[in-house]
Design a protein around this nucleic acid. Structure first.
Lengths: 189, 189, 189, 189
DNA sequence: GATGAATGAGGGTTCATTCAT
DNA sequence: TATGAATGAACCCTCATTCAT
């Protein structure tokens, strides 16, 4: 999606508000105030609030296509998750929502978009787990689905801890250790 | 906490509503309708909505003390997580909120309660990881924190998938496989 | 329909507001102020504004059933229109809306109700024109549809003039003269 | 009034919008969209919305002066109403507003204009009823005011029925029959 | 001429909560 | 114990209009 400058401002402000106060904190009033414009002005740039939320959700998908085209197997997996860490470091507010499907899932306008994206990402990772397994890079005595849950689950929890701690620890070093742990557990020596 | 019959009804209805419609779906109107009483009647049983939400959060802590007193080490860990699975199977609505801290964390009345409980549970598990490690039951070449993230993270994701899929798969068998995977990865042969 | 006391108050206030300021004048704010309650209080008595408007429309149908059961032919027709005059005299605000289908017809929620009622009344009158014609009470050399248009049209215009003049003339005597004119034109001597 | 090409476009679009959606449907947004220009552009051609509405009202007066100069008595009356039928046939949207004073009467900017025009037309017709009566063309045992109500009322109702039916019948033939009925009822043989 | 961006005022509606009964 | 009625605050959104470009 190509967003105008104002639209980007609005999306960023929306992410901030959701991160700070949850989806309930994303009111048009608060959003307008955060951007520094009036409420009606928001409607020049998005036709309704739902569109704004969907733009926010769309952010989680940024740049994933690039990764897909440049990496395969175990490397892709590490790169994919490293990209998540990168996103959170760049925009710490994301830590509080990037894996918080509940925030969006109860609105049918957003649920499908969210689920679709989750499935897409899961499939991308699963495919590359199978590739890495077939190539002998990682062990093949564990079902790909389970490996997926161990990898994605641990990264999700790390990011959630980072968010809930108020970004109180060094996400970079912790993620490096986590990735090393993955190598230790899954890579064939 | 000892809740009256009506209070229990209200708490259960609240869990149902949150599970179905998110925290935004928990309105006094909807709650009163779900219980089959009038809105003001809710205030006979709880002094405000916040108290109801806190009672809901308290549910996640049920029975944990029992476990603590009867199991240690790797066994405790398996039992702890097996209990979570049991809870979700008994009350599937929980799957949509048990690991959804975002739903509550943005309200300062609830955040502390939620964080306190998360820390308590994390500490219990970490202690037992250390014990299992020292006893030679599980490998000791991985930091306990990382093991915690792998275990808790993968279980969280499993339960979230179960909730988001609309309880579409057999949680029991999937969790059994997950636990076996944990054994395979962490237990010393 | 059985309306509560408050509901009746609201309906009357709504009629007043529409009569004075048109359908655009019927805002929840103005209505609440007119009744002397807050805006949300309106929603205890009607589930939305549309329901209020429909209740207003329903007023035009009041007592028509009674007439139907007690009169036939030319007598029914005179009684029907006399009843209209009576309604307007009792509630002069009605003069500004009773024949103002445009006020309601553009909202699909109301249009069907309005059209249905118009058809019902038209059919009742047409039936009785046919009866009066067959009984030899009124002339039979004019199509009933045309007689209907002359009668209903002239009465409508009289009431509209009464409303637009600010109730400036004696509706009673004017309507008596109109009815006499009808007798003169249509009755068989 | 002499309107520019763009102004005429705007007036026509306004009539269309009012006919379709009532006076509430005439918003600057909808109007601009219908004309295919931006909202601010409207203000190049009219200084505000009220001016547009007044231009619309002015349309109902078109060509009446011509009639006045070429016809007298019963002929004028028939010609006047035939002209109304002609207008509606040419621009069916008019059927939904030409006799819908309520749409405009509640705005003091427009009410006077509307009332003035109604009186002017009423006086023109009344004068010619008197003429026709004095000339012995129509009966003189009915007050001119009443004849006016019968004539204008029935024509108004015919046009309203035409509009409300969605232009579902042949207005031409129905109006011919109505005019014949008038002859039958009022003309001296 | 025309427009993109903006706005104060106001629209209908829902919220958690209170109070008299 | 329970409820019908009420409310201030806030919700999302649209209105006619302005102004710099």
């Amino acid at each position: 999606m190509d967003w105008s400058k104002r639209q980007k401002e609005i999306i960023e402000a929306a992410i901030s508000l959701i991160a700070q106060n949850g989806i309930e904190g994303l009111t048009t009033k608060a959003l307008a105030a955060a951007v520094g414009i009036s409420e009606p002005a928001l409607y020049r740039h998005f036709s309704n609030k739902s569109e704004i939320v969907q733009a926010v959700i769309g952010c989680f998908d940024d740049d994933v296509e690039n990764l897909k085209n440049t990496q395969r197997g175990w490397q892709f997996i590490k790169a994919f998750f490293a990209h998540r860490i990168e996103q959170v470091k760049t925009e710490p507010a994301l830590a509080n929502m990037i894996y918080s499907e509940e925030l969006f899932i109860h609105n049918s306008d957003h649920a499908d978009l969210m689920k679709e994206m989750m499935h897409k990402h899961r499939n991308m990772i699963m495919e590359n787990i199978v590739i890495a397994s077939k190539n002998g890079v990682i062990r093949n005595d564990i079902a790909p689905e389970m490996i997926f849950r161990m990898l994605a689950g641990s990264l999700r929890l790390l990011i959630k801890q980072y968010g809930m701690s108020g970004n109180a620890f060094d996400l970079c070093s912790e993620s490096t250790i986590l990735f090393d742990t993955w190598d230790l557990l899954f890579k064939v020596k």
